[in-house]
């Protein structure tokens, strides 16, 4: 029997930027996702990747003269919490 695999795309405005992402499901398991918070005006973004069986990791754009470390950390924390919200939302 073939697994009920699907790809979901999300794209929502958030504060001064956008949350966009791709979530891949196999039956009810989330097998991978990539979620990005981007501020296009500033050409800055932070990305959060996950693949099942591999450690999750975040990408910060390296060449951007980004905000302060604390601000970046806050964004990452926000991104993780937003992702958790998305997971809850998609499991409904």
């Amino acid at each position: 029997m073939r697994l009920a695999a699907r790809i979901q795309r999300v794209d929502e405005p958030y504060e001064s930027g956008r949350i966009s992402g791709v979530i891949v499901w196999s039956d009810s398991s989330m097998t991978k996702y990539r979620v990005i918070y981007s501020e296009r005006v500033k050409d800055e973004w932070i990305r959060f990747d996950h693949k099942s069986g591999e450690p999750s990791h975040a990408h910060l754009r390296t060449r951007t003269p980004l905000r302060s470390f604390e601000a970046m950390k806050r964004d990452l924390e926000f991104l993780v919490s937003k992702l958790q919200e998305l997971r809850i939302y998609f499991r409904r």
């Binding site: 795309r9 966009s20 992402g21 791709v22 891949v24 990005i36 973004w45 754009r61």
Partner: peptide, 22 residues
């Protein structure tokens, strides 16, 4: 370039990869 890919390109990459895997 995984570190420098723009958001749209990074999202295309994961969808394209998933389609190829499927």
């Amino acid at each position: 370039d995984d570190d420098e890919a723009k958001p749209d390109t990074a999202l295309d990459q994961i969808v394209w990869e998933t389609l190829e895997e499927a």
